[in-house]
């Protein structure tokens, strides 16, 4: 399970690419909302794929019925694993918001126009 990405052994990687993040709509909140919607769609799709796997295995082995699912009781371990997975889900959905903070936290980023100028300058340093 991917819940392990909250483990202490995890090496946390930079999640925001250095460079100004462009927005496209006249109100950048629309872009952010769209990003979150896509992340949600992604996670929904992941879940649906998993269910699809389960159903295919179950069907191929005559394992369980729909009623078994409805009456299944979750124990504390299972609940804990699910809660950890929800945290990952939220992190993905709100990535665009947290990456702004990651950027704010970082030592100054160069201005993108200055970078174009720098790489286009023929006499420039490399």
């Amino acid at each position: 399970m991917s819940a392990s990405s909250l483990d202490s052994d995890t090496v946390s990687l930079k999640r925001k690419a250095k460079g100004k993040r462009p927005f496209y709509f006249s109100d950048s909140d629309v872009d952010k909302l769209l990003t979150m919607v896509m992340a949600l769609a992604g996670e929904l799709s992941v879940t649906r794929d998993r269910l699809d796997t389960v159903e295919r295995i179950a069907a191929s082995k005559n394992l369980f019925s729909e009623e078994d699912i409805e009456t299944f009781e979750l124990d504390s371990d299972a609940l804990e694993a699910r809660a950890a997975r929800h945290q990952i889900l939220f992190r993905e959905i709100t990535r665009v918001i947290s990456s702004e903070i990651e950027e704010l936290d970082r030592e100054s980023s160069s201005n993108y126009d200055q970078v174009i100028e720098m790489v286009e300058s023929e006499g420039g340093r490399n």
Binding site: S5, T10, S12, Y24, V30, D31, L34, T35, R95, S99
Partner: peptide
């Protein structure tokens, strides 16, 4: 389109990072 393409690019890196981070 731009907003979605940019988002897909960010999601691509993120999705590739998750197993590596772990």
């Amino acid at each position: 389109w731009s907003s979605l393409l940019r988002t897909s690019q960010e999601m691509m890196w993120s999705a590739a990072q998750i197993p590596v981070e772990r």
